[in-house]
Computed example of a mutant assay.
Amino acid sequence: MTFFNKDDILNAFHYRASTRSYDGNKKISDDDFYAILEMGRLSPSSVGSEPWQFLVLQNAHLRQKLKPYCWGIPTMETSSHIVAILAKKNARYDTPYFGQIMDRRGLTGEAREKALVVYKKFQTEDIAILDSDRSLYDWASKQTYIALANMMTGAAMMGIDSCPIEGFDYKEVNQILADEGLFDPAEWAVSVMCTFGYRDKDIKPKARKAFDEVVKFME
């Protein structure tokens, strides 16, 4: 197992910045972007739910259709890759979706029944997300941001830039992508999008709160 020097990792965090201007002629290689997608796929999620799908939007016509509903940002055209991350809308403990989670874990018989009891208590009492469809979707969306962060950080470690996007009309973007047959809107919805590529100019160093403002040690 090869591990990375902490200074190199922190340098990547300092380098990473929301990139709003890309070199439209410079493209990420297939191998490198596959690695970025793998960073998302291999990310952790609550109770191993993996309530996500990654749509890689490379079609130029589709990008143009989306652009007016994404604040008209030019990176919808110039970024090398755009990923729309979908969140599962109905990842309840008592659905076939959770049955698939237990299948992946190889749970059968009594072990499966015990796991189901744990999942039920978790969703109904501990985190209490079954009071509305929106609460359940928001829980799934929170998981997608773990994958998003890992993809952006991993990309930065490879010298690849990115920018997370929440500035879009969710209703219209979901409708366009669903109409393209890319997902079933009864099952999935866009949680967040992200552009990837190579910056074409320097980016002002990021401003962050001081370490002592955000970290407290209780000893």
Rank of each mutant, 00 (worst) to 15 (best):
T144D: 15
F33S: 09
F217Y: 10
I203D: 14
Y145Q: 15
E113M: 06
K120F: 04
G48N: 15
D161K: 07
M76W: 07
W139P: 01
D23Q: 11
Y137R: 08
E113L: 02
D32G: 09
Y97W: 00
I203A: 15
N150I: 00
R134K: 11
A87N: 08
T78Y: 12
Y198E: 13
L62S: 12
A35D: 13
G40L: 01
K89M: 04
K206W: 04
N59F: 02
I73N: 15
D31E: 14
A155N: 08
R199K: 15
M193G: 12
A87V: 03
G167L: 07
G154C: 04
L182M: 14
D202N: 10
D161H: 05
I127C: 11
L55M: 07
R208W: 04
L86E: 09
M158E: 14
S162Q: 01
L136F: 01
K26C: 11
Y170W: 05
H61W: 02
A128Q: 07
G48I: 07
Y93V: 01
S135R: 14
F13Y: 07
D200Y: 04
Y69N: 06
N150R: 13
T2G: 08
I28R: 14
K171V: 05
M39L: 14
G181C: 06
P96I: 04
N174G: 07
T19Q: 14
L107M: 10
F13L: 11
K6A: 03
K216H: 13
P51R: 09
L66T: 07
D138S: 04
R208F: 00
C163K: 06
L42E: 10
F98G: 00
A115F: 12
F13T: 07
A84Q: 03
Q143A: 12
A115C: 08
D202Q: 10
I36P: 05
Y137P: 02
P68N: 13
E166M: 01
S162C: 03
D133P: 05
S80M: 06
Q58H: 11
K114P: 00
Q100D: 05
N174L: 05
G159E: 06
E180C: 09
E172A: 09
Y97G: 01
M157C: 10
D200T: 12
A149H: 13
N174R: 12
V192A: 13
S79D: 05
S162I: 00
L62F: 07
Q100R: 08
F98A: 00
E180F: 03
M1T: 03
T19D: 11
I129G: 02
G106C: 10
D94Y: 03
H61M: 11
I127M: 12
L107R: 00
K67L: 08
V47I: 12
L86F: 03
M193W: 06
S49I: 02
A91F: 11
P96C: 08
S29E: 11
D169M: 00
L62K: 11
V83P: 12
F3P: 00
K26F: 13
D202W: 02
G159I: 00
F168W: 11
E50F: 04
Q123Y: 02
E219S: 06
